[in-house]
Structure formats: structure tokens, C-alpha cells
């Protein structure tokens, strides 16, 4: 009983700590989306109904892996142990973050999608020198939301897992990761072979099958990331 109340207290304190940490993270995300949407309407005379969703997706794909690398860094882990916490709780909180952060980010991007729609309608009503394409239907939006969410969660979980294994070797892993991304951008053969591999893995899937594959990979990443954190010493 005593142990349960200690665990609950520690969980509350840890979640409160992460809430404080991620407040500024969301402020940055909000500012980026707002900046993008405003610049789009100011600079270009056209808009697509999915532009805010696309930019949000790209932002998620960049910001969440970086956040995972930060929360698994040695100094951050050390600070978390300033208050009582065990490794199971830490992993549980990280998993909650991996599940909740993309959801909040996607919901924010949906809000911006509505703002974008509204701005486009307003612009159309006052000028004819504006082009707007509305390509998203309700069902494609829902499926897209679900698949995007699962894909972002999966990528975030994979980054977390790799960061957890190499939490004391962030620099070499960062260099290898950066080299991989640069390879994807500049080396056509490399890009084709990587995308070919991913394509084979997700070959001709239905949304359900794709979700299942993403969920399995995510769960595997959670399990593999738990191992190094469970035996980690705070140095």
C-alpha cells in the first residue's frame, strides 16, 4: 500500500515535470505552424487544403525525434532522478509522452487546418486572384489522421529506442544519423534502396494492415528501449 502511494506520488511528480518541460516545446510548435500559415497566405496566391497538415507532419517528424533524443540524454535522465523515480515509471512516462505528444501535435495541426480553410474562404470572398484546392474528404481525413498518428508514434518510438540504447553516445549516433539523412537527400541509389526496403515492408497494405504493422514495430521499440533504461545507472 505504502509502495503504491509512493509510486503514485512519483508518477504525478514526474508527469508534472514533463508537463513543464514540454510547455515550451508546444509553444515552439505552435509558433512554427502559425508562422507557416501566415507566410503562406502573405506570400503565395494559392493554398491547398492539406498544406497545414503537410507542414505539421514534417514538423512532427523533426521535432519529436529531437525531443526523444533530449529526454533520453544523460543529463536529462540525471535531472529526473533528482526526485524519487524508478526506471519502470520513467519508461512508462516516456511511453505516455510518445503516445500523447503526437496526438496533441496532430490535433493542433487540425486546428490550423481549420484556420487555413477559414482564411482561404475569406480570401476567396474578397479576391478572385486566389486559387484554392480542397482535396480532403471526411473519410480520407480520418484515415489519414489515424495512419499519420501511428506512423509518427512509430518513428518517435524507434528514435526513443535508439536514443535509449546510446544515451551516453549521443554524438557518434547523431553523426551517423545525420550522415544517413544526408545520404537519403543526396545519394539517389541509397535513397532508392532504403525506400525500396520500406516499400517491401509496407507493400500494398490496407489501412488496417498498415496500422497493425506500425503498431507491432512500435511495441517492439518500446520493449527494446525498456532494456537499457531498466539497467541504467545514473552517473
Amino acid at each position: 500500500m505504502l509502495s503504491q502511494s509512493s509510486r503514485l506520488r512519483a508518477m504525478k511528480a514526474l508527469l508534472y515535470g514533463y508537463y513543464l518541460d514540454f510547455k515550451s516545446f508546444f509553444e515552439i510548435y505552435f509558433s512554427i505552424l502559425l508562422g507557416l500559415i501566415i507566410s503562406k497566405f502573405l506570400i503565395t496566391p494559392s493554398a491547398s487544403s492539406s498544406s497545414s497538415l503537410n507542414s505539421a507532419l514534417i514538423n512532427c517528424m523533426i521535432m519529436l525525434p529531437v525531443a526523444m533524443m533530449v529526454i533520453t540524454s544523460n543529463s536529462e535522465l540525471k535531472k529526473k532522478f533528482s526526485f524519487p523515480v524508478d526506471r519502470d515509471l520513467l519508461v512508462l512516462c516516456h511511453i505516455l509522452l510518445i503516445l500523447v505528444l503526437p496526438l496533441v501535435m496532430l490535433l493542433m495541426s487540425c486546428f490550423f487546418y481549420l484556420v487555413e480553410l477559414l482564411l482561404a474562404e475569406l480570401t476567396l470572398s474578397v479576391t478572385t486572384n486566389f486559387f484554392y484546392s480542397l482535396a480532403i474528404t471526411k473519410s480520407s481525413f480520418l484515415i489519414g489522421f489515424a495512419i499519420s498518428y501511428m506512423a509518427i508514434v512509430c518513428i518517435t518510438a524507434l528514435t526513443w529506442m535508439v536514443s535509449a540504447w546510446f544515451y551516453r553516445h549521443k554524438v557518434p549516433v547523431g553523426v551517423i544519423g545525420a550522415a544517413f539523412i544526408l545520404g537519403l537527400i543526396y545519394l539517389d541509389d541509397f535513397r532508392d534502396s532504403v525506400f525500396g526496403l520500406i516499400g517491401r515492408l509496407f507493400h500494398n497494405p490496407t489501412p488496417g494492415l498498415l496500422s497493425l504493422k506500425l503498431a507491432v514495430i512500435t511495441l517492439a521499440a518500446f520493449a527494446l528501449g525498456y532494456i537499457p533504461i531498466k539497467r541504467m545507472e545514473v552517473k
Binding site: 505504502l2 509510486r7 524508478d86
Partner: peptide, 10 residues
């Protein structure tokens, strides 16, 4: 080590 009951009292 990794014992929340003990750590809550330290």
C-alpha cells in the same frame, strides 16, 4: 536501486 518505496524516503 530502482526501489521506489526506498527512494521516496531518501
Amino acid at each position: 536501486f530502482d526501489n521506489i518505496h526506498v527512494l521516496s524516503n531518501i
